[in-house]
């Protein structure tokens, strides 16, 4: 039943996001971010995005860029126990992220993961059901990326501690395969080439 629930939920999310995604495609088509440092062509930018996308689809990233409840584990099951977003993306009274997750790091005894500002990504940063192109357009849109310009985006990928957790997720969780420095380079290239997004 749980599996069926997840499938249905995901189906609902996908159908919704197809609609939104299509709409976004039109009005955000020219919404590219200011170029960051360095030089790169639009083609380089697109190529870099493809590399970035492989990382974003990792459960370490995707599991918390969800609509209402995070997913859990490499198998991306619905979080057990079920937690919900709440008003501040940090859960609801009685079941806050911090009820279980430490702000300093993974728990070596219980294996419950932790990192600074552990939370669900804000709703406008949801990726569930979005195509790589949709995620790309979302990421370059300051209204949907936490008001980040190119420089701040690079910092986010290169230095943010919660993002960094993806490389040190603790026992039983697959870390992000691509080294962080390499990812950061791809982000820089993507931005320098005009933050191009696939259709």
């Amino acid at each position: 039943m749980r599996f069926a629930q997840i499938c249905l939920r995901q189906f609902a999310v996908i159908s919704l996001s197809v609609v939104f995604g299509t709409a976004l495609l039109f009005w955000q088509a020219s919404n590219n971010l200011s170029h960051g440092e360095g030089t790169a062509s639009a083609a380089d930018s697109l190529k870099a995005w493809d590399k970035i996308a492989t990382v974003l689809e990792n459960p370490r990233c995707l599991n918390c860029h969800q609509v209402n409840s995070p997913l859990q584990g490499d198998e991306r099951r619905l979080h057990v126990p079920l937690v919900v977003r709440g008003e501040d993306n940090l859960g609801v009274p009685g079941m806050r992220c911090t009820t279980c997750h430490s702000q300093t790091g993974n728990n070596p005894t219980s294996s419950v993961p932790g990192a600074p500002h552990w939370s669900l990504a804000p709703l406008e940063m949801n990726w569930q059901g979005l195509s790589p192109g949709d995620i790309c357009r979302q990421l370059r849109d300051p209204k949907k990326n936490g008001n980040r310009n190119a420089e701040k985006l690079v910092t986010h990928f290169a230095e943010d501690e919660l993002v960094g957790w993806g490389w040190t997720p603790g026992k039983g969780r697959m870390p992000v395969a691509m080294p962080r420095a390499e990812l950061t380079e791809h982000v820089k290239t993507w931005l320098a080439g005009g933050s191009e997004c696939p259709k």
Binding site: M95, T99, N107, S110
Partner: peptide, 24 residues
């Protein structure tokens, strides 16, 4: 459970619930 699944170890830290089995 030792893994923050059951809540039997719940305490309050600064007024909010916290699973003590997963709190260093």
């Amino acid at each position: 459970c030792g893994v923050a699944q059951c809540g039997a170890c719940t305490v309050h830290v600064d007024g909010e619930s916290r699973r003590s089995c997963s709190t260093m």
